[in-house]
Amino acid sequence: MMAYIARRLLLAIPTLIGITLITFLLLGVAAGDPAKALVSMKGGEYQIEQARRETGTDKPLHIQYLRFLGETFTLDFGDSWVKNRPVSDLILEGIGPSASVTVPAFFLATLIAIALALLCAFYRDSLVDRLTVISAVAGLSVSSLAYIIFGQYWVGYRWNLLPVFGFESGPQGIVFLILPWLIWVAISVGSDVRFFRTVMLEEMGKDYVRTAAAKGVPTRSILFKHILKNAMIPIITRVVIAFPFLFVGSLLLERFFGIPGVGYLSIEAVTTNDYPVIKALVVYSGILYILFTIISDVLYALVDPRVRLR
């Protein structure tokens, strides 16, 4: 297994170089001279020259790319062009708020979805199953913006049950997170239920389930020991691959609820042409994605003895 992990980590290097190359081509070449957008209309040629010199965009392209590669492998992307603060500090400051919204909401939504999916699969084609599937489809057809606007208007403003907006660190901040959590759950549970239900149904139709039932194995054991365990591979894939995105945050929720997370930072960086922040976010996301893909492969082997990592 260690050899497999080492090989996958080595393979990550060319992948990372590919990510940096595409990012550089998009930002450094196709998007044009960033200094011209960094200086406001009040500045002129002199200020643009200054901006080029201080951001290093006056250097030849290959030098700029080599610098970007160096930054990628040292994970030091320098200072934000707009905020003039280290990019790593900005991202670290944002991870906590982002994760405080996404991680609990994600687990809550996943647990609810798995439970509902098991219920639907167990009583497939019944009223319960149909109602749940119809609700799931209806739920995922509604735009996330509609959930946010509804939640803020009714739950926050009209009923005054939860804060409309805001963020606080520490335990007193939980009350500000409940509404974003509920909205996240409402947004994501529908598609999760549909996916997990399909996985469960496929497992339930297999011979070993029928055999276990025929042998008189209790229903609870069939459901939780046999079916759920065997359905874990697709569940793990979906759950683990979603992890990197949890740290990147939720763009809409963070913007509408004033949560100072990474999603908020990425919107700001894109709208202000803050290339160091954009580059760092792309590279960090790439690294997280690669790492979690490896973790999900390792988990396959742990939950299913038939899987061997070579």
Partner: peptide, 29 residues
């Protein structure tokens, strides 16, 4: 979760008397 809403919807816990609350439309850089 909804039960936790007993905490209320006060966005300024520990506010001082006479404290002023103003909006900013965009985050300062």
């Amino acid at each position: 979760l909804l039960g936790l809403t007993g905490c209320g919807a006060d966005p300024y816990p520990g506010a001082l008397p006479g404290e002023m609350h103003v909006p900013l439309a965009v985050a300062p850089q």
